[in-house]
Design a binder for these strands. Sequence first.
DNA 1: CCAAGGATGGGCT
DNA 2: GCCCATCCTTGGC
Length: 219
Amino acid sequence: MTCPDRRSAALAELSDLLAGPVVPAARGLLGARLSAGGVTVRITEVEAYAGTAGDPASHAHRGRTPRNAVMFGPAGHAYVYFTYGMHWCMNVVTGPDGEASAVLLRAGEVVDGLDVARARRPAVRRDVDLARGPARLCAALGIDRSVYGAHLLGDGPVRLLPPAVPVPAEAVAAGPRVGVTGAHDVPWRFWITGDPTVSTYRRHVPRRRDQPVGKQSQA
DNA sequence: CCAAGGATGGGCT
DNA sequence: GCCCATCCTTGGC
């Protein structure tokens, strides 16, 4: 059983980290746990997005809109968006109030509620694939539009918890973000080295048929 | 094993 | 009207 003081200290530490620059916040989210809908996931892969601060890949790059508004608010809230006509993805808002940065949760390991997650995703065969990929992670946790803007560090239905076991810096790998058209030189995807639940990297390829691209996988 | 293509809807140039 | 921070199935090797 965890001592309450120690637990709240760790939560305050996480809260402070999220309120700071997006890259350390992203790394600090590795190993943290996200609980929702009867399922808990240990986060194994994330991506940092720097909002209006010169990051063309961010949904906030072109300024504030109704969709991205929550990213401009204080850290520790959920930015949930709908994509490809059927998938939900979730970010944790970071940085000071007024600045739009966020961390996309790309993959996790289901550490509680395995049967619930399996029931939600009958198409997925292996357990390591249940929350492998940003949309699958949300599907496993039952996250949808209703989670938009939720505060994640309190007693709400969607909760972020500090890592049960801290992830040492040497266990974290970095590389380019997935599916991002530009900014290939920006290594803002972070994952836990060798973790089987990390999604395989695929370089973004514009719709082309004639040009095969070599396979790449995680290190 | 891998690559290709379809499903499907909202956001914004 | 075009573009997706995607996933799943299929059909090839």
